[in-house]
């Protein structure tokens, strides 16, 4: 997203430089371009050639110089932008700021909603996978019930009996999360190809980012944990007597 900061015409080059420097400090800022009065007028004339005589009649250049700030895409949906704009407004030499705060706020609340839905779906899926894995294991436990009871009667320790099932559970869990990561990767790489162009300006908002390596590790790890818990719980009943 872009923010246009209109400057006071009487700003000295030093003051302008200082302001520019200050804005650059913000981590939100990706780029900053200075547009002089002349450049602004040229742009205007290019866009609306019919109005050129009107401007000539005016005699002076009515366009103030401006700074065009590009916000880092990863912050474009952040609430930090709002406070950044507030502080900009209070800067000396800043006449006006043009941006669509409405949008910013709407996107923000949309973002919160998406996050909440994501969290909800995520925990639902987590429970579902726990349920599925423990049922898959329960099935294989029931299939081998006879063997388990014999193992217990010939003096197998619980861990000896658990091991193959727990391994099965962990492998299932890890396999599940690997498949999930694979699908995610596929979606991320295919999504822009299919709908990227139709999104146009929304592209920035609906960015799909692939998981970071630590997220991948956490996902695989929790897959394993789910498998472990699932198999452990479905065995407990069979390790009595």
């Amino acid at each position: 997203m872009a923010v246009i900061v209109f400057l006071d015409k009487n700003l000295t080059p030093q003051e302008k430089g200082a302001l520019e420097e200050k804005i650059k400090q913000s981590p939100l800022v990706a780029r900053i371009d200075y547009v002089t009065q002349e450049q602004a007028m040229t742009r205007f004339i290019q866009k609306f050639p019919d109005l050129q005589p009107l401007l000539q009649d005016l005699g002076t250049n009515p366009f103030p110089p401006s700074l065009e700030i590009t916000i880092q895409p990863r912050y474009s949906r952040s609430h930090l932008v709002t406070s950044f704009l507030d502080s900009l407004k209070r800067e000396k030499g800043v006449q006006d700021i043009q941006f669509n705060l409405d949008w910013v706020e709407r996107i923000e609340s949309f973002d919160r909603l998406v996050r909440a839905i994501g969290l909800f779906l995520g925990s639902l899926l987590l429970l579902a996978s726990l349920f599925i894995i423990s049922n898959v294991i329960r099935l294989s436990v029931v299939n081998r019930q006879e063997e388990i009871s014999i193992l217990r009667l010939v003096g197998a320790t619980n861990n000896f009996i658990r091991l193959p099932f727990v391994l099965e559970g962990i492998i299932l869990g890890i396999l599940g999360s690997l498949i999930a990561i694979g699908f995610l990767w596929l979606i991320i790489s295919l999504f822009p190809l299919y709908v990227g162009h139709s999104l146009g300006a929304f592209k920035e908002i609906f960015q799909l980012r692939s998981l970071t390596s630590s997220q991948v590790i956490i996902l695989i790890f929790s897959g394993g944990i789910i498998g472990f818990v699932g198999s452990f719980s479905s065995l407990a009943r069979f390790l009595k007597i």
Binding site: V154, T157, N158, L239
Partner: peptide, 11 residues
């Protein structure tokens, strides 16, 4: 229950 294997190993 989890120590019963000690008994069963003798049988």
């Amino acid at each position: 229950d989890h120590l019963i294997y000690r008994l069963r190993r003798q049988m």
